[in-house]
Write a protein that binds this DNA or RNA. Structure first.
Length: 871
DNA sequence: CATCATGTCT
C-alpha cells in the first residue's frame, strides 16, 4: 500500500510538475486524468472518494488551493492530505500549506504533518516566517518538540506567539533549560516579545529554582516596559514565591499598577505556603477592603492560612462568606474548610462539615482522621479508617500515612500492625511515604525489628527513610545500630546526610561517647552550613557535653545565634553531669533573664545538677519555684532528683519521709535513688527496707540487687551477699554485665571484666601491675572490698585489675599520644577502687582522664576527680 | 490531605 501511494504521488508529481498547468482548465483535466489513473487501482477507493468529493462537492471550484482550504475549513485532514499528495509544487500556494499545517496541528496528527513537511521540503518551497511558524506550531502541537525547535534554527520566525507556544510546551515537558534557551535565542534574534513570553520564561526559571536567572529576567522585563502588564507582574510574583523570595514577591506585588484576583490570590497563597500565614491573612483583609471580588482559590488559601495560624474566628467569617458566594457544594471548599476546623481544634465543626458534605471524598476522610489524631482521639481515627472502606471510599496513601502517624504518636502497635496488613493487602507498600510512615510507626512503638524489616524491603529509599531508621535506633537505645547505619549511608553515597540525619545520629554518638565520630560529624555540619539549624546545633552541644568536652560544648553553645529552651537545657544538663552545679544554676538564671520559660525537662536538668553537686538549699528553692512560680506539677523525675539530693548529702530519713509524702506513687527509680544514698552513707538497715520496695517494683532489674549486694559487701556482710546472689539465681536473672569502652583512632575498643581479648592485653596488664606497685609504694591500699561487690565481680572473684574501666583506661594511656585526653565510658557506675586508681594514674602519668559512667562524669587530673566524692 | 530531627531519667 505504501508503495502504491509512493507510486501514485510520484506519477501525479510528474503529471503536475509542468509549470504551464496554471489555469483551471488544465487543472481540471489533471484531475480527470488522475481519476483515470486512480480508477485503475480499485484498492484506493478512499482516494477516488476524495476525488469524487472534489468533483461533487462544488463543481465550480477548480483550484487545488481552494479545495484544500475548504477541506481545512471543514476539518477534513484526511482528504486534505490526500489531495496534497497528488498535487504538485506549482499548484499549491504557501498560504494553503499554512492552512493544512494548522489543521495538522489542530488534529495533532504528526504523521500527516510530517507528510506535509516532506511535501514542502521535497518541492523546495522557500520557508518564510509564516510557513515556518506553522511548521513549528504543527510539530509543537503534535508533541515533536525536537523538530519544532529545529524549525527555529532554520527559519527566523517573527511572531512571538509561536516562540511562546514552543517555550510553553518545552516547559510543560520538563525541559526548562530548553525553554530558556529558546527565550535566549528569541532575545538575540531581536524578535519582539509580548507579555506572554515573559510569563512563560519566568515559569521556567521558577521551576529550575534559578533565582539568579529570574532576577535577571526581572531586570530585563523592567527595561522592556512590560513590567506594567498585569500578567507579567503576576508571573514575577509567582516566580519569587516559588523560590521562597516572599519579600521580593511582595515588592513586585506592591509595585503593580493593576492587580487582579490572580495577583491577590497568589500573594496570599504565597505567604501561606511559605509559613507566613498571618501575613497572607492580612493581605486577604486588605483585599476585602479594596473591593476585589474573591473567588474559590482565595478562600481555599485563606482557610489554609487560618488552619496554620489557628485563626478560627477569621475562618468562621470566611466560611459564611463562602456559603453566601455559593461555594458550599464545591469539593475543595468543603475539604479545606473541614481541614481548617480540624487543625484549629474545633472537631465538632469539622464533624458538622463532614456530615453535611454531599459527597465525601478520600480527602475528606483523611482530613477527618488527621483531625481525630491531632486531638488525641486515636480510637476514633482508626475507627473512621476502618469505616470508610465500608462506605465505598477506599483509603489512599495520604489516608494511610495519616493513620500510621496517629498510631505512631499514640504508640498503637496493634492498630499499626492492622494498618500494615491492610497496606499489604492493598499493595500500597511501594509508596515511599507509606513505608517511611510505617517505619516511623514501628520505631515509635519500640519495634525496631519490624521497622528494620520494612526498611530492608523498601525498593526505593530516600533520605527520609534513612533518617527515620537511624533516628529510630537512636531513640530506642540502639546507638551502635544507628551509627553503623549512618556509616552505611555515608559509604553508599547515594544520599547526603541532611540536617535531620545529623540531628538523629548525634544522640547516638552522645550515648556512646563516640567523641571522634562526633567530631567528624561536626566537621560535616560546618562544611554544609548545618549549624544554623537549631536541632543540629543543640544536639551537637549535647553530644560534646556527653562526650566530656564541656568547654567545647559551651563554646558552641555561645555560637548559637538564637538559643531556645533545648539549647539551654542541654547546657545546664551538661554542667550538671560534670558536677558544676553552680554553673548550671547560673545558666538557668541567664536563661530566664533571656525571657525563656523553663519547662519540666529543664527543671529536671537543673535539679539533677543541684543534687549532683550537693546543692541542697538551691535544689529546694528551685523545686518550689517550679511548683509555685512556674506552676509545673512535679513528675517522678523531679521527685527522684530531690530524693537523690537528700540521700546523697546524708539526709536519709528526710528522704524516706519525703517519699512517703509524695502525692504520686513512687516508682523504682525513686526508691533506687534512696538506696544509692544508703550505700554512700553505709546505712544497711534502711537499705534493706528500701531494697524490698525496689525489688517489689522492679523484680527484673538486676542493677538493684547488685547495688544491695554492694552495700552488704561494704559492710563486710558476706553471708548476706551470698543470699542475695542466690536470690538472683533463683529468679533466673542475669545481671547486666559491666563493660567499658574507649575510642582509639576512630575504633571503639570494648572491655568486659577480666577481658583478655584485646591484642594489647599483655601490655595493659603489665602497665596496671606497674601502677598498682607504685600505688602500694606510696601508701595506697587496694580497696579490696570492691573485689567482691561490683557486678562483674560477683561471678569472677578475681583481682581488681580485671575491671573493665581499668582495662580501658590503661589501653588509652599506653596507646595514645601524651597530650591526648583519655575518654572512657562505662555502662554501670564506676567502681571505688577504679576511681582511686584513676586518680592515681592521672597524677602518675600526667594524663587527663575523663570517665563517663552511667551516672555522671569523672574528670581525673593531678590526682583529683571533679566529682569531689559525689558519685 | 502526607512521611523523618534536638533537651531529663533508671
Amino acid at each position: 500500500m505504501a508503495m502504491l501511494v509512493t507510486n501514485l504521488s510520484s506519477s501525479s508529481f510528474c503529471f503536475f510538475s509542468s509549470p504551464h498547468l496554471q489555469n483551471q482548465k488544465e487543472i481540471r483535466s489533471g484531475v480527470r486524468v488522475r481519476k483515470d489513473v486512480i480508477s485503475n487501482r480499485a484498492s484506493l477507493r478512499t482516494v477516488s472518494d476524495c476525488v469524487d468529493s472534489i468533483t461533487t462537492f462544488d463543481r465550480s471550484v477548480t483550484d487545488a488551493n481552494t479545495q484544500l482550504r475548504r477541506f481545512c475549513e471543514s476539518g477534513n485532514l484526511e482528504n486534505a492530505v490526500k489531495l496534497l499528495r497528488v498535487s504538485g509544487k506549482w499548484d499549491i500556494d504557501p498560504r494553503t500549506l499554512c492552512s493544512v499545517l494548522q489543521l495538522c496541528a489542530d488534529s495533532k496528527s504528526l504523521k500527516d504533518g510530517k507528510e506535509v513537511d516532506n511535501f514542502i521540503r521535497g518541492n523546495g518551497f522557500v520557508i518564510d516566517s509564516n510557513l515556518g511558524s506553522k511548521l513549528s506550531l504543527m510539530y509543537t502541537n503534535c508533541g515533536d518538540l525536537k523538530e519544532a525547535s529545529r524549525v527555529f534554527d532554520e527559519v527566523k520566525i517573527e511572531k512571538a506567539l509561536f516562540w511562546n507556544i514552543l517555550m510553553n510546551e518545552l516547559a510543560k515537558s520538563g525541559d526548562f533549560s530548553g525553554s530558556i534557551g529558546l527565550f535566549k535565542k528569541m532575545m538575540s534574534s531581536g524578535v519582539e516579545m509580548d507579555s506572554y513570553t515573559f510569563s512563560c520564561v519566568s515559569k521556567s526559571f521558577s521551576s529550575l529554582r534559578s533565582v539568579h536567572g529570574g532576577e535577571q529576567l526581572h531586570g530585563f522585563i523592567l527595561k522592556s516596559g512590560f513590567g506594567e502588564r498585569n500578567s507579567v507582574g503576576n508571573s514575577l510574583v509567582a516566580f519569587y514565591l516559588k523560590n521562597q523570595r516572599v519579600d521580593s514577591a511582595r515588592k513586585v506585588f506592591d509595585e503593580m499598577t493593576e492587580r487582579d484576583v490572580i495577583s491577590w490570590n497568589s500573594i496570599i497563597n504565597g505567604y501561606v505556603s511559605n509559613g507566613l500565614a498571618e501575613k497572607g491573612l492580612s493581605v486577604f483583609v486588605q483585599m476585602l477592603v479594596s473591593g476585589i471580588e474573591i473567588d474559590l482559590a482565595t478562600i481555599v488559601s485563606v482557610f489554609a492560612g487560618c488552619a496554620d495560624s489557628r485563626l478560627i474566628s477569621l475562618g468562621r467569617a470566611v466560611h459564611s462568606i463562602g456559603v453566601k458566594a455559593c461555594f458550599s457544594r464545591e469539593d475543595r471548599f468543603c475539604n479545606t474548610l473541614l481541614d481548617m476546623y480540624s487543625k484549629c481544634g474545633d472537631l465538632d465543626s469539622a464533624k458538622a462539615v463532614f456530615r453535611e458534605m454531599s459527597d465525601r471524598s478520600v480527602v475528606s476522610y483523611t482530613s477527618m482522621i488527621a483531625g481525630y489524631a491531632r486531638e488525641g482521639l486515636a480510637g476514633e481515627a482508626v475507627k473512621l479508617f476502618e469505616e470508610m472502606e465500608e462506605e465505598g471510599i477506599s483509603p489512599d496513601v495520604y489516608t494511610v500515612t495519616a493513620v500510621l502517624n496517629c498510631c505512631a504518636r499514640y504508640r498503637l502497635l496493634d492498630e499499626g500492625k492492622r494498618v500494615h496488613e491492610w497496606i499489604k493487602e492493598n499493595d500500597l507498600g511501594f509508596d515511599i511515604f507509606v513505608s517511611n510512615a510505617l517505619m516511623d510507626m514501628y520505631a515509635k512503638c519500640g519495634s525496631m525489628r519490624e521497622a528494620e524489616l520494612v526498611f530492608s524491603e523498601m525498593r526505593v529509599k530516600d533520605i527520609i527513610s534513612w533518617n527515620t531508621i537511624i533516628g529510630g535506633y537512636s531513640k530506642n537505645c540502639y546507638a551502635n545500630e544507628a551509627l553503623s547505619l549512618f556509616n552505611l549511608l555515608l559509604e553508599e553515597k547515594r544520599f547526603s546526610p541532611d540536617e535531620r540525619t545529623v540531628a538523629c545520629v548525634l544522640p547516638a554518638c552522645a550515648s556512646l561517647s563516640a567523641f571522634d565520630k562526633g567530631r567528624e560529624i561536626h566537621g560535616y555540619i560546618m562544611r554544609n552550613g548545618y549549624f544554623s539549624d537549631r536541632h543540629v546545633a543543640n544536639s551537637l552541644v549535647d553530644m560534646y557535653a556527653k562526650c566530656g568536652a564541656l568547654l567545647l560544648a559551651h563554646m558552641l553553645f555561645d555560637d548559637i545565634a538564637s538559643k531556645d529552651l533545648v539549647s539551654w537545657t542541654v547546657m545546664i544538663a551538661g554542667y550538671g553531669m560534670h558536677g558544676f552545679g553552680k554553673e548550671a544554676i547560673a545558666l538557668f538564671n541567664q536563661m530566664r533573664q533571656a525571657g525563656i520559660e523553663a519547662d519540666e525537662i529543664s527543671f529536671v536538668s537543673l535539679l539533677y545538677a543541684c543534687s549532683h553537686s550537693g546543692l541542697v538549699d538551691e535544689g529546694w528553692r528551685f523545686f518550689n519555684i517550679m511548683r509555685h512560680e512556674c506552676k509545673i506539677e512535679p513528675t517522678v523525675e523531679h521527685y527522684a532528683c530531690i530524693v537523690d539530693m537528700l540521700a546523697r548529702t546524708g539526709d536519709l530519713i528526710k528522704a524516706y519521709r519525703f517519699i512517703e509524702n509524695m502525692p504520686i506513687p513512687p516508682d523504682a527509680t525513686i526508691w533506687g535513688a534512696l538506696l544509692c544514698g544508703c550505700r554512700i552513707h553505709h546505712d544497711v538497715k534502711l537499705a534493706e527496707k528500701v531494697a524490698e520496695k525496689v525489688f517489689e517494683l522492679e523484680p527484673e532489674n538486676t542493677g538493684y540487687y547488685v547495688l544491695m549486694a554492694n552495700i552488704y559487701a561494704e559492710a563486710e556482710k558476706w553471708e548476706q551477699v551470698k543470699r542475695l546472689r542466690k536470690r538472683i539465681g533463683q529468679r533466673g536473672l542475669r545481671k547486666n554485665p559491666g563493660c567499658s569502652w574507649i575510642e582509639i583512632k576512630g575504633r571503639v575498643n570494648i572491655f568486659v571484666a577480666g577481658d583478655s581479648s584485646n591484642p594489647e592485653t599483655e601490655n595493659i596488664e603489665a602497665f596496671l601491675r606497674k601502677v598498682r606497685a607504685r600505688m602500694i609504694e606510696e601508701g595506697y591500699s587496694p580497696l579490696t572490698k570492691y573485689a567482691l561487690i561490683d557486678a562483674e565481680e560477683m561471678e569472677k572473684e578475681e583481682a581488681l585489675c580485671g575491671h573493665s574501666e581499668k582495662l580501658a583506661m590503661a589501653l588509652g594511656i599506653i596507646s595514645s599520644g601524651h597530650g591526648k585526653i583519655i575518654r572512657v565510658t562505662k555502662n554501670l557506675r564506676v567502681c571505688g577502687d577504679c576511681h582511686e586508681m584513676a586518680k592515681f594514674m592521672s597524677k602518675l602519668t600526667r594524663r587527663e582522664i575523663v570517665l563517663r559512667d552511667s551516672n555522671r562524669f569523672h574528670q581525673f587530673k593531678d590526682g583529683h576527680c571533679s566529682c569531689r566524692g559525689f558519685w
